[in-house]
Structure formats: structure tokens, C-alpha cells
Write a protein that binds this DNA or RNA. Structure first.
Lengths: 199, 199, 199, 199
DNA sequence: CATGAATGAGACTTCATTCAT
DNA sequence: GATGAATGAAGTCTCATTCAT
């Protein structure tokens, strides 16, 4: 089972393209192989089976996604800034790859329990990133210290994810990145907003 | 195509039970028929096809869900109170029917694009409910009036939905309803919270 | 899983015909279904899977094979007569169904270990039949009483089976049944033969 | 197509080992190549294709098998003695190589018609050996001269083969060679046995 | 109204063989 | 001579839907 090489990447990218174009349930291995310019059997030199390919797609793409976000976060000082960076990176990266956004927001969710569990494990790394920002902000006194950080994480992720999904379902008709500011402001100030912290 | 009668209800309930127990992809028409105590063919006297049955499940259950929420909202005055009621009703109703919560939060999401669009249409009624609360609060000055109400709605729904999904994925191990208060507070005040509006 | 009905028999017989005609490895389910005049899926209403079908073929055919032999043996007194009847019934029944003889002597042997084990279990009933004849003959003093009955059984079955296989591999070119007499004589008297017992 | 050289032998032996260990249907060319310590493609420098390799395995092993038997037979005078030697050599050689016994008695039989025909051709040399012993014995008057030598050969080979197969299927749990005597006696004297010829 | 036996399209995966290096 | 990455054909089984009873 080779896990590197130019064909490995080609197949991963072909999977994203095919899933985005035809939908999860219409993404046969043969279609992906054709798109990648390899024979059907070649897929199985690089991946154990179809599920392994799909998990790898999520792993590779989400891995780089998280890494870039982590790097960008290093340059930020305050928790408020960090949260802003996280949201902006999230939206920016999705906006930079429409195909990928369709795959992660819509198509890869229609999978069976097993696959979703494996995807969930990859996601944990991202949620931990959010947790760190939250604990940081709560310890420094910027964020309300009597919050349950898990609920706060669910609010942040739920909001970002729902916003991204809506954007994809509206066929990317508007800019996603420019929603980072207002979303950030709402998360910080809440619905009743308008107080000095971020203005 | 009969849309009423005791068997209609039996089939809808059987579908919820089977999907909750075996998962979406293991919920064959024949299994649902068996659970409902009818013949396979009988399903097709009440539903056009399997997709129609699944949409109907969501319709019937979500319809009652929304209705009860609407009724409860009538008794509330302020937007802040209304939001609290909405969250509480949401959590309370999910908590009252674990099977249904599995179906709506996990299983019914693994569907193809078409079905999800139809489910989305049913959901619109619920989202409109949120929109009304928001516009209400923004007009009365309680909520920040320069928010984009659509983003606010995405924050509210995204947060509630993510919280509910986490609760289901953690096997209903803790109380969901008691999260209504802290969630409500966070949505109102944001992460930096702690200011006079709701205390 | 229905195990009776006219289609059940049709499928079993179609399997014999197809395997005899095209060989074990060229006997696809679709080919058998076509020969039986049913849809591919119908096979799976009557059999768990392809292996189950093949085992059932052997079971059904061998079951009737053994039963007929058992019935015929009842009318015989001496062990020598019984052995003659067993051989004659064996050859007679194979000769009566050339297709079946190809299937049991040649094609059904090219199966994997699992299937062969299951076939072996069915065969045991037949081998037990031989054992009874042997013990009978040994107790009555007709057969050499210091033989190992298991070796004797292997000689009898090995000889009959090898003779039948040769006959099939020679395209049924000669009569099989008329070999029962000389085979019987050889088994009784051995190669050095020519002594009073059976003449 | 090289048919000699150290790799040729290595591949033959690797095939025996792999087939004995994993079974015929799990003996892929790549597995045999790995066991032999050569590349997949190298197999095709020494053998035309997989079938050719399998036939060669049988050829090489059976060739030496027959040769040794022939040599041993030279020292025997009477047909009775010769038959005893043949049986003893057969059992002795199988007992000396358990792997080979699994391959020839069980695994190599699960092959398609074509391959079995080719294996049959190799076997003919062995069957001819038996025929010679039989004709010898019949001409000299030791064996019953009105037997059909072909049937006698089928009895001898069928008995030996069935005995060997049973021994392998019972996981070589008992000694095979020590069955040569009783088997020989039974073949000579038959089931009714006990007369002066071999005692 | 209700039944349930029958249909048949469609896809993942394996593995013998090749050929550029 | 030797390698091993790449090829691509081919078959079992599931399950939504129908329709004769």
C-alpha cells in the first residue's frame, strides 16, 4: 500500500472533483480512476478500499486546512484576535476551493456511521484548536469565565459550519470571507451586542 | 395515494424506529413494512416512493415540532424570552423522543442532495420562526439592529443544532434541556458576555 | 429464505445443467438464473448465496442418491449382496444422469476448502452406509474380520469413485453399470481372486 | 523461457509451500514470487503463465516421485512384491513431504478442466507403472487373468489415492506408511481375504 | 384495500500478465 | 537477466418497486 507519489495525489484530487461534480452516491471508483487518468485497479495500490480513499481525502485536505490555520494563529496575541483568524482562515480556505467546500459541507456527510466516526476523529484536532482559544480567552479574562467551554465550542463551530453550509447550498453566490467580520462580532458580543470589547 | 389512516401513522412511526435502531442505510422498505406490520406493497399505497416516505417522516414530526414551538411562543413577550422558549422547546422535544433525535440529527443527514433539499424546505418554516424573533428583537432595539438577521439566524440554528447533535452522538448521556439556559445566555451575550441585558 | 416450491427445484436443476455444460468456474449466477428462467435476484430468495446454492445442489442430489441406495439395500440379505447392490446403485444412478455425474465427479471438486468440507459432511452419510455393510460382513464372518473397516471403506469408495471418474472423463463412452459386476468381484476376491466365495 | 537454473527450482518449491500453507485459491502469483524471493515478472521468465507453473510443479514433483518408484521396483521379482513396493513407495514419499501431500491430494484438485487434463497426462506414466505390474502378474498367473486390467488399475490407484487423501484430511495424524501392508493385503485378497497367496 | 413474490440494474474489488527501466 | 508498478476485465449480491392475486 503506497501512500505517496504523484498518483496518490492525483487520485485524491480526482476524488474531490468527481464527488463535487456528481455527488457522493454517484462517485464510483471507476469514475474517480478515469478522472485521475489511472486504471481502476491502480486505486487499490494506493488505498485499501473505497472507504479508505474517502477518509484519506478528508484527512489530507483537512490536515492541510488545520495546519494552515494553526500557523496563522501563531502570529496572534489575544483570544479575540485568534478567534477572528480562525473564522477568517476557515472561510478563506473554503472560498479558495469551491470543489472542496462542496465535498466537506455537503457530500461527505452522507456517509455511513463508520466513515463518519473516522471523519469525526480528524475533526477533533480542529475542535481542540477552538478549545485552546477558548481556554486562553477565559483564563485571560477576555471571555466570560463561567461559560462551559464545550458549549462555547459548539456555538462557534456550529455557527461557522452552518454559515459555510448555507453558502455552499446557495451555490457560492456571495462572498464567504467577508462574513468573517460580522460572524466574529456576533460570536463575541452576542445578539444584544454593542459594547466596547471589540469596537 | 392515501395520506391518512391508522396505517399511515403506523408506517411513519415504524420508519422512525427502524432508522433509529438500524441506521439510515440499513433501513430497507421491507424492514419498515415488517416493523409496521404491513406488507411491503402497502407502503406504496400511502407513499409515492421511499423518498416520499422519508420526507413525510420529517414533515410529520417536524410539523408537530414547529407547531408546539409556535404555540408556546405566543405566550412570550420579549424577543429575549421568545428565543429562550424556542431553545427550550427544541431541546425539550428532542429529549422527549430519543429515537426521533437520532433520526433527525444523525441519520436523515446521510441522504442525497435531492432529499436534503426537500428536507430543507420543511426546515424553512422553522427558520422563519427564528427570523421573526430576530426581526422582532431588532425592531424593538433589544437585539443589535445592524446585524444581518440571516447570519444571526445561522448562528442560532447552527448552535442549537450542533449542541443537539453532540448530545445524540454522546448517546444522550447528559440532560439536553438544562443546556437551554447557558446556550441562551451565550447567544444573547456572546463570548465576552456578562453584561446587564439578561441578568 | 424459502427452501421449497417449484422455483427452488428449477434453480437446482438449472445449476446442474449449467455446471455440467460450462464447468464450475464458468457457472455464474446470472447464467444459472437464465437457465432456470428466473431473475438473478430470485436465486437469493431461495439461497443465502452462491455457495449455499452449490451445497444445496449436492445435498438434494446426493440425498436422493443415498436414499434410493438405502431403500434398495433393505431387500438384501448378505453383505456380499449388499455390496453388489451399493455398487450397482451407484453406477446406475450416475449413468441415469450424465449431467449430474459430470457435476459430482469433476466440477464440484474444484471448490474451496469451506465448500468441500460441507460437501464432505453430506458424503459421510454415504460412507456410513458402506461401514454398515462392512461391519455386517465382518461380524457374520463373510468378510475378513481382522481388516481395518476404515481401510476397507477407503478401498471400496476409492475404487468406485475412481471408476466413475474415469468413466466421466472418457465422456461416458462405455457403459458404467456393467462394470458393477467385475468391480464387485475384484473387491470381494482381490487381485488374486478366483476362489469359491462369490462363484 | 528458461526451464533450468536456481530460480526455477526456488519458484517451484515456493509454489508448493504457498499452496500448502494458503490453499490453491489463495496462492496468487505475487505471493509465490515473494516466497521465492523474486519479482512477480521473473516468474514469467521461467514459466509461460500460472497454469504452466502449476503443471510444472506437478511434473517436477511427480517425475521424481515416479522415478524413485521405478528404481525401487527394479529390485523386485514377483508382481505381488512389486505391488507392495509401489504402495509403500507411494505412502513413504507422501509421508516424507507433508507440504507436497497437501498440494497433490487436496489443493491441485481444485483446478479447472484444462489443468486437470494436463495433470492427468503426467499421471499416465504412473498408471502405466501399475499396468505393467498387473500385466506381469496376470501373465505369470499370480493375478486373476480374466480381470480387466484397467478396472484393476482403477481399484489400485483409487484405493491408494483415497487412503492418502483421508490421511491428509485427517491432518497427517497417523502414520501413512504403516497402512501399506494392510492395504496391500486387501488389494491382493479382497474383502473376503484370508487365503494362501500372500501368507 | 392488501399482499409479497419476483424483478434486474449496478458497483467494488481481485489478480494474472505486461513492459519500461 | 530482473524488476514491480500498472493494467482492466469480470462477477456476486442488494433492494426499491411492481402487479397478479
Amino acid at each position: 500500500m503506497k501512500r505517496k507519489g504523484p498518483k496518490y495525489e492525483k487520485i485524491i484530487d480526482a476524488a474531490v472533483t468527481v464527488i463535487a461534480m456528481h455527488g457522493y452516491h454517484q462517485s464510483q471508483v471507476s469514475k474517480i480512476a478515469k478522472e485521475a487518468g489511472v486504471a481502476d485497479g491502480t486505486i487499490y495500490l494506493y488505498f485499501k478500499n473505497k472507504e479508505d480513499l474517502l477518509v484519506s481525502v478528508f484527512n489530507e485536505k483537512m490536515g492541510s486546512f488545520i495546519e494552515k490555520t494553526e500557523n496563522e494563529l501563531k502570529g496572534r496575541q489575544s483570544a479575540v484576535e485568534k478567534l477572528h483568524t480562525l473564522i477568517e482562515m476557515h472561510f478563506k480556505q473554503l472560498e479558495a476551493d469551491h470543489e472542496l467546500s462542496i465535498v466537506t459541507q455537503l457530500e461527505l456527510r452522507q456517509t455511513n456511521r463508520d466513515l463518519r466516526v473516522k471523519i469525526g476523529e480528524v475533526l477533533k484536532r480542529y475542535l481542540t484548536l477552538i478549545d485552546h482559544i477558548l481556554k486562553d480567552g477565559m483564563e485571560s479574562g477576555t471571555f466570560n469565565s463561567d461559560m462551559d467551554y464545550r458549549l462555547a465550542r459548539q456555538m462557534i463551530f456550529g455557527t461557522i459550519d452552518e454559515t459555510a453550509t448555507n453558502w455552499v447550498m446557495n451555490d457560492h453566490r456571495y462572498g464567504l470571507r467577508r462574513l468573517a467580520d460580522p460572524i466574529h462580532k456576533m460570536l463575541i458580543n452576542g445578539l444584544c451586542g454593542h459594547h466596547p470589547h471589540v469596537e
